[in-house]
Nucleic acid binder design. Structure first.
Lengths: 211, 211
DNA sequence: GCGATATGTTCACAGTGTTCACATCGGCTC
DNA sequence: GAGCCGATGTGAACACTGTGAACATATCGC
């Protein structure tokens, strides 16, 4: 960590570029994070980005990982709030499961630009980032869902058979709502109404798990 | 409709461009439909596209509307197949509701490139296309969902209170699954397994509607 | 037949991602 | 401490994109 950020060599350009990308993406979404735009925001030449990232895609992925971190943070906050005043193991497990979904939706509504970025993180295709954050103190969003479902099964909220592959109905409903409210027909609706609708979606899919 | 497609003036360049865009999008998704690429595929100069579309976005929207048509077609096919051998009004209504979701998912899995395009159609933001197809013999996907839910309410499958805003849990789950299976962590999974999972998602959300 | 109009072309410009030769600095070895 | 070397940032270039303006050509109404 060199304390002498000379005029030529930057202190830590990689994180500076990711920060700049994060800042740009907050308003303009993924389209706003281009190598020229990001380097311009960081006050540096375009080509300098290629010392730290293989190509444009790699830069976007790095910013996306940072955005996923933010997503994970608001999810744990929501989970903590909901599980705080739960009684027995079953209600705690249910509260945790609800917190996973509601936190995901809360983040999407509050930070649509970052949310769009964070989604790239789940794409396993070549060039996509791994779905699991390894260099973070906070577990990846998907792992939180898995953990919450396991806890529900252990507490008897759902049966072992219902637990099987339950990730996907849950993830589908929550992610789908976030996408619809963020890029789809629900864009621009009243935030309070959206939050209520999101709660309904979460509760509906949890109920549907036991059918 | 001029029957003389001379070398200079094209017969009907607008539909030719949309067709070319459709063909390109089938493999490359929305990114593949650029004005230069589309006009190149149609054997015409780039600027000619601007005689028929205001800008790149308008061209994409036109192709997206065509893709939405295809989506709607496979949905009605699936609905017909499922409602064919249903007994009473309640089972017919339920079959129609399932058909809406399963048809949507079927199309997404079969034609991910076109599906990506069709999604743009639901974006109400400036530049987005209207959600309702007006110049088509087939109703828009969303209207099919609304109709199926109304029929369920009429047949007593769900109560009037449960009917209220039921579009959004349903749309969220089905669209979310399609998105996950198409651009998310489920990409590349075994098609049969995906179809089974999709069925589970649809049945789970329908069950959850009555909670 | 002839002009008006619609449609397609050519050229130019700004912006993008990317590469390559060069400049500059920090840290290593002697 | 001197000197080099690898790491890091720069500048100029290339190919590509969307887009607009001026021009060319074919079709239609009189």
């Amino acid at each position: 960590m060199p304390q002498t950020a000379s005029s030529y060599h930057h202190g830590d350009l990689r994180v500076a570029l990711v920060d700049a990308g994060l800042s740009l993406a907050r308003e303009g979404g993924v389209d706003a994070v281009g190598v020229r735009e990001v380097t311009r925001a960081a006050g540096v030449s375009p080509a300098s980005a290629y010392r730290h990232f293989d190509d444009h895609r790699a830069l976007v992925v790095a910013v996306a990982l940072a955005a996923q971190d933010r997503l994970a943070e608001t999810m744990v906050a929501r989970i903590s709030a909901l599980t705080a005043d739960a009684g027995n193991a079953a209600s705690t497990a249910t509260a945790r499961l609800r917190g996973v979904g509601l936190g995901y939706i809360e983040f999407a509504l509050a930070e649509p630009g970052w949310f769009e970025l964070a989604l790239l993180t789940f794409d396993p295709r070549p060039g996509g980032a791994p779905a699991v954050i390894v260099d973070s103190e906070v577990p990846a969003p998907f792992l939180m869902l898995v953990g919450a479902l396991d806890e529900c099964a252990a507490a008897g909220v759902i049966t072992a058979a219902q637990r099987e592959h339950a990730e996907w109905p849950c993830w589908s409903a929550v992610h789908g709502f976030a996408d619809i409210a963020t890029r789809g027909p629900l864009v621009g609706q009243d935030p309070a109404a959206l939050a209520a609708l999101g709660e309904r979606v979460v509760d509906a899919i949890i109920a549907g798990l036991r059918a």
